[in-house]
Design a protein around this nucleic acid. Structure first.
Length: 629
RNA sequence: GUCUCAGUAGCUCAGUUGGAUAGAGCAACAGCCUUCUAAGCUGUGGGUCGGGGGUUCGAAUCCCUCCUGAGACGCCA
C-alpha cells in the first residue's frame, strides 16, 4: 500500500533517518567498522562521513510489518569477509543492546524532537530478515514530533530557498481568435501549480501569459473576415465565428492558392500599422481575452502579465544587434543564424533571408526582457514537448551571449493532447473547447450533489469546485510526457484517483472536526486539536492505520521540495492521494469521536493535520477545498 | 536519415539517483451504510516490466542492441 511514495527511501521519515544513521554510525564504530576499513568500492563517490554514508544506504522495508527503516548489509560482506546475514545479526544485536541500555521502554516521555542525536529511545527494536537489519521507530515520539511540526509549519507548507529571488513562469499562452482548447489546459494548470510551488519556497513569481497575438495567421483571419465574415454574427459569438472563418479560409486556400498571398499581404499591412487592420486586430484581442477570462475564472488562474508576442516587435532589433556585436551571427544560405555546433545542436535561425525575424528571435527578446526589465532570476517555460529543440537552442544562444541566467532557464515539457489518437488541429476545426468540458463537469457534479447531499448549502459553488477540480486534477496527477488521448469520461471521473476523491476526503476531515466542535467552516489554520497535540502525553500504542498515516504526513516537506526541484506537481497530487487513501482507511478502522479521551484527542489531531495538508496540497494544485460536499 | 521522448495488469498510469514477494485507480465479480459524509471501505481475479544480450551478490531501474509509437530536425509559431 502507498508504495508509490513509500518506496522512495529519500522521502520517507527523512528527518528520522538522519538520526538513525548517527545511531548506526555509533554501532559501526563499536564493531570496528569505520570509513577507513570500508574499501573504496563500498565508499565510491559517497561522503567521507560514516553517518552520511549510512544515511545514503538506508531504505524502506517492502512490507510495513517488517519495520520502518532498513539497512541492507550486502555491500559490507566483501570488506568484512563475513556473510551479509552474519553482519546483519551482529548489527541488530548491538542495536538491541543499546536500546535496552537506554531503558527505552520506561522512557516514553523522554523521546522528543529535542532529544540528543544519540538518543536510543528513538528506536524500539531491531530485527533481521536475512541480510537486512530492520529497525522500528518509536511511534509515540515520532507522531508527536510530526503533529507538532505540522501545527508549527516547520517546513511543511513553506520554505525559503527562493527568498529574494524572482521566477518568471511562461504558461497558458493561448492563441488570439482561436478557441481555448483542452490542449492549453495542460500548460495553464501545470504552470499555475509550479508557480504556487515556487511561491511556497519563497520565490516571488511572475506568471506570464505569452499570448499568440501575432503572425501571418492574423492576415488570414482578417482577410477571411473581410471576404466572408458577417459582422453581426461575429460580434454575437466572436471566437467560434472567427475560428470558423479561419478554418473556412484554409479550405478556400486549397481551391484558390492566390488567397495565401492575400493573407500574407494583409499581415504586412498590419505590420505596417494600417489603422483599419490594427483596429480589427485589437478588437480580436479584446473579445478573445473576455472569452479566455471566463475559463481562467473557472480555473482560478491569474497572470501578472498578459504579454503577447506582438509586445516584442520593437525589441527584436536590439537582440539582433547584440548578437552581431558579440560576433555570434553568421550568414548561411541567405539567412542569419547562430551556429551551435559545440552544443551539438542545429543552428538557430535568427533572421530570414528576406530580413524578417523568426520565432527564436522573439523568444530571445522575451527572455532578455524578463531578465533585464522584470529582473527574473529563474525563467521557466511550461510549453509542450514538441518544442524541446527550440528551447534547447534558445538557452544555448543565451549562454553563448554570456548570460549566466541561461543556466536558470528550464523548459517544462509535457505530452500532447490528442483527440481520438490524432493531433488536434485548429486549422481543421478539431478542438475540444475547455469551457464546454468544464461546464459539463460542473453539471455532473451538481447532479451528484442533488442526489447525495440535496441539503448542501452553497451547492453551486461546491459543484463548481468539484467539477473543475476533477478536470484539473486529472491533468495534474500524471506529469508524464505521455501524450494524452482526451476522454471526456476520464476527465470527468469522480471516483478513485481523482480530484473529487481528494476533496471528498478533505470534506470528511472537516466534518469530523465540526462534529467535535473544533472547526469553523473554511478554517485554514491548525485547530485546537492539533495545536495542543504536543502536550499529548498519552500517545502510547498507535494502531497501524494511525502510524501509516503519520508516516505519510511526515513525507510532505520532502515531497514538496522535490516537486519544486523537479518542477513536477504530480508528486504533490500523488502524495495527496496516498494520504487520502490512508486517512480513509484510518477513518474506517479507527473510531474517532466515540473513543476515550486520550485516543480521541490524538485521532482528532491526526485528522486536523491531515485536513491541513490535503488542503494545502489542493491549493498548490489550484483546486478548491470545500468544507463539505 | 539524424536527434529527442516514450513502451510496466484488459484500460489509464505509479515505481526508473540498482535492493527483499513489481503497486494503485478504472473496468469485472463478491461483500460493507440503525455508529464520525458509501464521491467511501474490504476482498477476488488479472504481469515474459517491448525483445535479446551485458554489468552486479542483486536490474523494471545502469550499459549495448533490436523492435514499436510519438515528436523535432533552417527561412511557420
Amino acid at each position: 500500500m502507498n508504495s508509490r511514495i513509500c518506496r522512495q527511501r529519500m522521502l520517507t521519515v527523512q528527518q528520522y533517518m538522519t538520526r538513525v544513521s548517527h545511531l548506526l554510525a555509533e554501532i559501526f564504530t563499536e564493531l570496528g567498522i569505520d570509513t577507513d576499513t570500508l574499501d573504496s568500492s563500498v565508499r565510491t563517490g559517497g561522503p567521507a562521513d560514516l553517518s552520511s554514508l549510512l544515511w545514503s544506504w538506508l531504505e524502506l522495508p517492502p512490507d510495513k510489518t517488517m519495520g520502518d527503516i532498513a539497512l541492507p548489509c550486502f555491500r559490507l560482506a566483501k570488506t568484512l569477509r563475513q556473510a551479509p546475514v552474519a553482519i546483519a545479526t551482529s548489527i541488530a544485536d548491538a542495536v538491541t543492546a543499546h536500546i535496552a541500555a537506554a531503558g527505552a521502554n520506561d522512557a516514553e516521555q523522554v523521546a522528543s524532537a529535542a532529544a540528543p542525536p544519540n538518543d536510543w529511545t528513538l528506536l524500539t527494536d531491531a530485527t533481521t530478515a536475512g541480510p537486512y537489519v530492520n529497525l522500528r521507530l518509536r511511534r509515540s515520539s515520532v507522531t508527536r514530533d510530526v503533529l507538532h511540526a505540522i501545527a508549527m509549519d516547520n517546513g511543511y507548507c513553506h520554505s525559503g530557498r527562493g527568498a529574494g529571488k524572482i521566477a518568471a513562469i511562461d504558461l497558458s499562452s493561448p492563441n488570439i481568435a482561436k478557441p481555448f482548447g483542452i490542449g492549453h489546459l495542460r500548460s495553464t494548470v501545470i504552470g499555475t501549480a509550479i508557480a504556487n510551488l515556487m511561491e511556497s519556497d519563497g520565490y516571488q513569481t511572475l506568471r506570464i501569459n505569452h499570448l499568440g497575438d501575432w503572425g501571418t495567421q492574423f492576415g488570414k483571419i482578417i482577410t477571411s473576415y473581410r471576404l466572408y465574415g458577417d459582422p453581426d454574427k461575429v460580434r454575437a459569438n466572436p471566437i467560434p465565428e472567427l475560428n470558423d472563418l479561419y478554418v473556412f479560409f484554409h479550405q478556400q486556400e486549397k481551391l484558390h492558392p492566390e488567397l495565401e498571398d492575400e493573407g500574407r499581404a494583409a499581415f504586412l499591412r498590419l505590420e505596417e500599422g494600417d489603422p483599419d487592420s490594427l483596429a480589427l486586430w485589437q478588437w480580436m484581442i479584446e473579445v478573445s481575452m473576455v472569452e479566455f477570462q471566463r475559463t481562467y475564472d473557472l480555473l482560478s488562474s491569474r497572470f501578472d502579465f498578459n504579454l503577447g508576442e506582438s509586445f516584442y516587435n520593437d525589441k527584436m532589433q536590439a537582440v539582433i544587434d547584440e548578437l552581431r556585436e558579440k560576433g555570434l551571427l553568421e550568414v548561411s544560405e541567405g539567412a542569419e543564424v547562430v551556429r551551435l555546433d559545440e552544443e551539438n545542436l542545429p543552428p538557430c535561425l535568427i533572421r530570414k533571408s528576406d530580413g524578417a525575424t523568426l520565432y527564436p528571435t522573439r523568444d530571445l527578446a522575451a527572455a532578455l526582457y524578463r531578465h533585464h526589465a522584470l529582473h527574473a532570476d529563474e525563467l521557466i517555460y511550461v510549453v509542450g514537448g514538441e518544442q524541446r529543440l527550440h528551447f534547447a537552442q534558445l538557452f544555448a544562444v543565451l549562454a553563448r551571449m554570456g548570460y549566466d541566467f541561461a543556466a536558470h532557464c528550464s523548459h517544462v515539457a509535457f505530452g500532447m493532447m490528442l483527440l481520438e489518437g490524432k493531433k488536434m488541429s485548429t486549422r481543421k476545426g478539431q478542438v475540444v473547447r475547455l469551457q464546454e468540458v468544464l461546464e459539463e463537469a460542473i453539471a455532473r457534479a451538481k447532479a451528484i450533489i442533488s442526489e447525495k447531499n440535496p441539503l448542501l448549502p452553497d451547492a453551486d459553488a461546491v459543484a463548481r469546485a468539484v467539477g473543475v477540480g476533477a478536470v484539473v486534477f486529472n491533468d495534474l496527477k500524471n506529469n508524464r510526457l505521455h501524450d494524452i488521448d482526451f476522454s471526456l469520461d476520464k476527465a470527468l471521473a469522480f471516483d478513485g484517483e481523482t480530484g473529487p476523491y481528494v476533496q471528498y476526503t478533505h470534506a470528511r476531515t472537516c466534518s469530523v472536526l465540526r462534529k467535535a466542535g473544533l472547526l469553523a467552516d473554511g478554517d485554514a489554520s491548525p485547530g485546537e486539536a492539533l495545536t495542543s497535540a504536543d502536550s499529548l502525553s498519552e500517545i502510547q500504542t498507535l494502531e497501524e492505520p494511525e502510524w501509516e498515516l503519520t508516516k505519510l504526513l511526515s513525507q510532505y516537506p520532502q515531497v514538496r521540495l522535490r516537486a519544486i526541484d523537479e518542477r513536477d506537481p504530480s508528486l504533490i497530487a500523488k502524495l495527496a492521494m496516498d494520504i487520502c487513501q490512508e486517512y480513509n482507511h484510518f477513518y474506517h478502522d479507527c473510531p474517532i469521536l466515540t473513543s476515550t479521551a486520550a485516543i480521541r484527542e490524538r485521532r482528532l489531531a491526526l485528522t486536523d493535520a491531515t485536513r491541513l495538508l490535503i488542503r494545502h496540497a489542493l491549493s498548490l494544485l489550484g483546486l478548491e477545498a470545500p468544507a463539505s460536499m
